[in-house]
Nucleic acid binder design. Structure first.
Lengths: 226, 226
DNA sequence: ACCTGAACACCGTTCAAGT
DNA sequence: ACCTGAACACCGTTCAAGT
């Protein structure tokens, strides 16, 4: 009780660093300052340690970012309720992925730059593949549908967070795009502009997701459609 | 004939740098070495100049990257043949976007990191919006469909180029993913694994694109479907 | 075993000074 | 007008040496 019982009895001073706390501190720093400000030196500073010390726990910065992505994906690896329709369950998973990426500043950028194969990432993919295969899709179609949902969600959230970034800076989307479109001869873009410059990205996400789900529904009705 | 006739008569030595040549050299360097190796110093070296000289033509490195993205998008801004079906024309545009991003190493990463509002980018978006509005979609639906296609293509190409990157390194997708999936209890993922580890990404892209198009087709038949 | 200190080889960006 | 030279304030990563 008096001394913490870890699997390996700690001889000497307890370490001031460990993988778990480092990942958590890194995610907190990410939220506070963004990906560009997340340096090994700043992270080390936040943990009261020199930069070199981090390399006992992560071989490279990329490994740390991968671990952060994996931690984020744990939130997306939810099991959708069993009673629902396959399309609803798939939509729940896609929304969970978007929310997991949105939960941390530049989350989509972190995820896009890494290739985690941890239980969070694989658990999410397994859940998607399960919903699709249980719905009757062939293995190859389930795999491709999974990729389509992930890629759409990734691209969407990347742009959503990019639009959020500047915080009142110069290359902000809304006005710059409006100006550029209204100047030249872009009649169709002008017509769509109110939609394209909406601040709330949730309807855009739901629209794209509904498109993918509807596409899957037609494929399920007629697997030889093409 | 003997002296080049530019709009502004060149007094003194002709400049060794200009925006156009710098962008072209930067894209060539990108193809040769990748985005991580594309530094202002290396680019300057490739142009026989000191790094600081670049800042007379681009305010920041981000501005240069935006100009590179815009140049890449010029290739995607093709006008699909007028006789074809709206869904075919939209597909042609989506494929042109993917090809434009694939045409340069890390092209998707460059595009994702910037927000170009030049004629290439806007021309592409205008073409997509035009196809959709001419097909009868409401302005808001056309805008959202355009975003869905772009976001899916961006996410897809990002992953496609990420899988291409290492060139025989450590975090390559095919074997690492196979190992991770086969180790644990991922029955559905195991079933989909042959598809997920395919080297050719074109079928994945076509599948996702077909899903979006099929979803749009159902929406067009019944606009009040939801 | 764990961390420090200091170095190595870089970055983006700025700006006086030269031509 | 255009570019150099040199600096400023950083990076990721390595590694002997301390404790």
């Amino acid at each position: 009780m008096s001394t913490p019982s870890t699997s390996r009895p700690a001889r000497g001073r307890p370490p001031r660093l460990d993988q778990g706390r480092t990942i958590e501190t890194a995610l907190a720093l990410l939220n506070d300052s963004g990906l560009d400000a997340l340096t090994m030196r700043r992270l080390a500073g936040a943990m009261g340690v020199q930069a070199g010390a981090l390399y006992r726990y992560f071989e490279t910065k990329d490994d740390l970012l991968t671990a952060m992505a994996e931690r984020m994906m744990a939130d997306a690896s939810v099991a959708p309720e069993g009673g629902a329709d396959w399309s609803d369950r798939l939509s729940v998973l896609a929304r969970a992925l978007r929310q997991a990426l949105l939960a941390h500043r530049d989350g989509a950028r972190v995820f896009a730059g890494t290739h985690s194969t941890g239980p969070g990432t694989l658990g999410f993919a397994e859940a998607c593949a399960g919903v699709l295969r249980d719905a009757g899709f062939a293995d190859a179609d389930a795999g491709r549908a999974l990729m389509a949902v992930v890629h759409f969600t990734l691209g969407h959230t990347l742009e959503e967070q990019a639009a959020l970034r500047p915080g009142g800076g110069s290359p902000a989307d809304p006005d710059v795009l409006r100006e550029a479109v209204s100047s030249g001869g872009y009649p169709h873009l002008t017509a769509a502009l109110p939609t394209l410059t909406e601040a709330d990205y949730a309807p855009h996400f739901e629209f794209g997701l509904a498109l993918l789900v509807a596409g899957l529904e037609t494929l399920r009705r007629d697997p030889h459609h093409r």
